[in-house]
């Protein structure tokens, strides 16, 4: 069975239609890149998949392991295995980082019928994973994302992903705001989580992330539809020729 199936998905915010019939199937072990210009619906797609309020699905369905997600709240989807790495991670003043991570991990463990983690073991686990991502202890003690640099916020997203062990991860413009060193660290963090059980959707405007996180498939999103699908070489095409060529060709075809 496919891991994630997006079927003829139409979505709108208010009176504005954004997604116009997206079809996409992701199997376990696959990494799919979705590329597209600004305004093509990339972020809307990530929010619709993760269950943010304010979007209306007018047609179609999203299935995770064969179960429709449409009636599920964001937190239920997350506990079912969905993870969204935010383009702009949110600062939560006053919410302690460790308490936040622990609440999230325990929510997922409870859902899976497993015991919650004890505090000491959890701190050790977080430190070990954080260390791999170059996240300092001091960052872990602060409030969630407060006072973090852009690169630190992205690393913190990947840390959460590593702790939550999702079955499907959506990385929304994870490369934005990263310098080349941070991009490498974040990409290594993502790559270390690739495996036969997890599916990934890497949403990006630029090709450069995809030379670090090499996708199995590349899809071009334009005006709320996937207009072209190919392998990793499609990303290089975009890099060389831009989106406009491709969109024109797609229209002709």
């Amino acid at each position: 069975m496919a891991l994630l199936e997006i079927k003829n998905l139409h979505a709108r915010i208010g009176d504005t239609d954004i997604l116009h019939g997206i079809n996409l199937t992701i199997n376990r072990g696959e990494v799919h890149a979705i590329m597209g210009p600004n305004g093509s619906g990339k972020s809307t797609l990530s929010y619709v998949l993760s269950g943010r309020n304010g979007y209306e699905i007018t047609e179609g369905d999203i299935l995770l392991d064969g179960e429709s997600l449409l009636e599920m709240e964001a937190d239920e989807r997350a506990r079912a295995g969905m993870f969204l790495a935010f383009q702009y991670p949110v600062e939560l003043p006053g919410v302690g980082g460790m308490a936040f991570l622990r609440a999230a991990v325990n929510a997922r463990l409870r859902e899976q019928g497993e015991d919650e983690v004890d505090q000491l073991g959890f701190v050790k686990l977080v430190r070990a994973k954080a260390n791999e991502l170059g996240i300092k202890d001091d960052m872990l003690k602060r409030a969630v994302n407060v006072g973090f640099s852009g690169g630190e916020k992205k690393r913190y997203e990947i840390l959460q992903m590593a702790l939550l062990n999702p079955s499907i991860a959506i990385l929304d413009e994870t490369d934005s705001g990263l310098d080349i060193d941070a991009l490498k660290i974040v990409s290594e963090g993502v790559n270390s989580q690739r495996g036969p059980e997890i599916g990934m959707v890497v949403i990006t405007h630029y090709q450069r992330l995809l030379s670090h996180i090499v996708p199995d498939f590349v899809h071009i999103l334009s005006a709320g539809k996937i207009v072209k699908t190919g392998d990793k070489s499609l990303a290089l095409d975009v890099e060389e020729n831009g989106y406009s060529d491709m969109m024109e060709n797609a229209n002709v075809a």
């Binding site: 993760s50 269950g51 943010r52 309020n53 709240e73 964001a74 937190d75 997350a78 506990r79 993870f83 969204l84 935010f86 991670p89 949110v90 939560l92 003043p93 006053g94 919410v95 308490a99 936040f100 609440a103 999230a104 929510a107 997922r108 859902e111 409030a143 969630v144 959460q160 939550l164």
Partner: peptide
Amino acid sequence: HLFYLQSRGIDEAEARAMLIDA
């Protein structure tokens, strides 16, 4: 803020309580 917490699997009631504490 609520969405960020919920997207991590924390249910709405707990997320609200965390934000009120904060």
